[in-house]
Design a protein around this nucleic acid. Structure first.
Length: 423
RNA sequence: GGUGAGGUGGCUGAGUGGUCGAAAGCGGCGCUUUGCUAAAGCGUUGUACCUCUAAAGGGUACCGAGGGUUCGAAUCCCUCCCUCACCGCCA
């Protein structure tokens, strides 16, 4: 969440930055400022009354110990108490409203993020390899997978409903080998610490990373909204140190986890309904970094490169785009998307989204560090997929299909999956 | 799931209704002493918020969380969370 002090001190700056995301946001700044000023007025008054009451109560204590009458002080203090009750209730309600409003305001885009309305304005910043050329019409992963028995979509629907997949036989093994490959790459080569976190998290965690309260319909909830199935390992990983004060010497933290991700895809019914591209449960290897503010942008570049290494090792064609202000995720100040080419689809698929939330998530989850001077400051958090398994799988299978409809396993993966081809 | 004990500052640990934000010790920081190290002595040492400000200052809240009783709560009551022990069940 945004720093209320920044909003107070530089409201025009905040309004102007938010307007680059969406035109209705500046109004929310005014709403917060109004309630903030009302709240502070009441709070100040309550504190004055409390000071008065504390003074009188002490007098009462002293008078009683001297066996003197304190009737006058008692009646005064009772009157003050009533006033405090009334005012502090109002002030608490205002504080709650303020928090609610603040939680609903997205992060400020970083100054160097290109301004634009939607995905159409996202500039391409890097391209790797070229589109593979086929002498025939490449098949899509559903045809290939069905023919080779890599997964069973019909039976998955039977047991779980649309939007689920069941990997089978060599198809399941391919995913397992791919997962192991990704984890080894990020831990052994890139220095991330492997975490196997819970897949069910408390509500506060979802608030901490920004999924809640605004996007509750997108998540699978349990126990009447007290716990949620994670939509990404970003949630448990980033929240690992929630409510803690780390030492600057502990930073940066590099964390990686392989988990399933559960998404209801509430707003996207009817989109990408075929195959593995948009499903309710998919696996993902997620990278998270917790850093000082001074190094976060440099760390974001490195993190993005760490994710790109996956696609490069597998020799896939991809591009890196930067999200413009209108397309940025709620909690993020800057984001690069990695899109891999899927020949059977004839389009790029987003397999990683690498973002810096700056201190936006850290504020929501009260994650601080003690700097060299002993001052407590909010950490910066960033995350990116390294990468989403299901879509990587699609690109891999479609790119490495052979004229006889077998699939060649790229060299770096062979030891992991245990075979050179699937036919 | 059952029963019992318990959650106090960076740590250990006192405190059972009134100058308690909280004794004491440890740790940390500063100064003094010192050939170095060590030790000793003295001082200092939480967070958030409000107000005011050039700076300083003043105030409020916080003893797991939330609510209640009371003129007044770390202390009494209720709910929840968590930890520990034992029992039951179980991958």
């Amino acid at each position: 969440m945004l720093d209320i002090r920044l909003i107070r001190a530089r409201p025009d700056f905040v309004r102007e930055r938010l307007a680059t995301r969406s035109s209705e946001l500046p109004q929310q700044v005014d709403d917060v400022l109004k309630i903030d000023s009302e709240r502070r007025q009441m709070e100040t008054r309550v504190q004055q009354l409390n000071a008065e009451r504390n003074k009188l109560s002490k007098q009462i204590g002293m008078l009683r110990s001297k066996k003197e009458s304190s009737a006058e002080q008692e009646s005064n203090v009772r009157a003050i108490g009533d006033e405090i009750d009334r005012l502090s209730q109002a002030s608490a309600a205002a504080a709650e409203l303020q928090t609610t409003l603040l939680l609903g305001i997205p992060n400020l885009p970083h100054a160097n993020v290109p301004i634009g309305a939607d995905a159409g304005a996202n500039p391409e910043v890097r391209v790797w390899n070229e589109k593979p050329v086929f002498s025939y019409q490449p098949l899509d992963h559903v045809e290939l997978g069905t023919k080779l028995g890599l997964f069973d979509l019909e039976r998955a629907v039977k047991i779980s409903g649309t939007g689920f997949v069941c990997f089978t036989n060599l198809g399941a093994r391919l995913q397992r080998g791919l997962t192991q490959f990704l984890l080894d790459l990020q831990t052994i080569e890139n220095g991330y610490v492997e975490i196997c976190p819970p897949h069910l998290v408390r509500r506060e965690c979802m608030v901490g990373t920004g999924q809640l309260p605004k996007f509750e319909k997108d998540a699978y909830e349990l126990e009447e909204g007290q716990t949620f199935l994670i939509p990404t390992a970003e949630v448990p990983l980033t929240n690992l140190y929630r409510n803690e004060i780390l030492s600057y010497q502990d930073l940066p933290k590099y964390l990686v986890a392989h988990t399933p991700c559960f998404r209801r895809e509430a707003g996207s019914a009817g989109r990408d309904t075929r195959g593995l591209i948009r499903i309710h449960q998919f696996n993902k290897v997620e990278l998270v970094k917790i850093t000082t503010p001074e190094t976060s942008y440099q760390e974001l570049e490195k993190l993005t490169a760490d994710a790109e290494k996956v696609l490069e090792r597998l020799d896939l064609h991809y591009r890196r785009i930067e999200l413009c202000t209108g397309d940025l995720g709620f909690s993020m100040a800057k984001t690069y998307d990695l899109e891999v080419w899927a020949p059977g689809q004839g389009r790029y698929l987003e397999v990683s989204s690498c973002s810096n939330a700056e201190d936006y998530q850290a504020r929501r989850m009260n994650l601080k560090f003690k700097d060299v001077d002993g001052k407590n400051r909010f950490c910066h958090t960033m995350n990116g997929s390294g990468t989403a398994l299901a879509r990587l799988y699609v690109a891999l299978v479609e790119t490495y299909q052979q004229p006889d409809r077998s699939i060649l396993i790229p060299e770096p993966l062979r030891d992991y999956v245990g075979f050179k081809e699937i036919r």
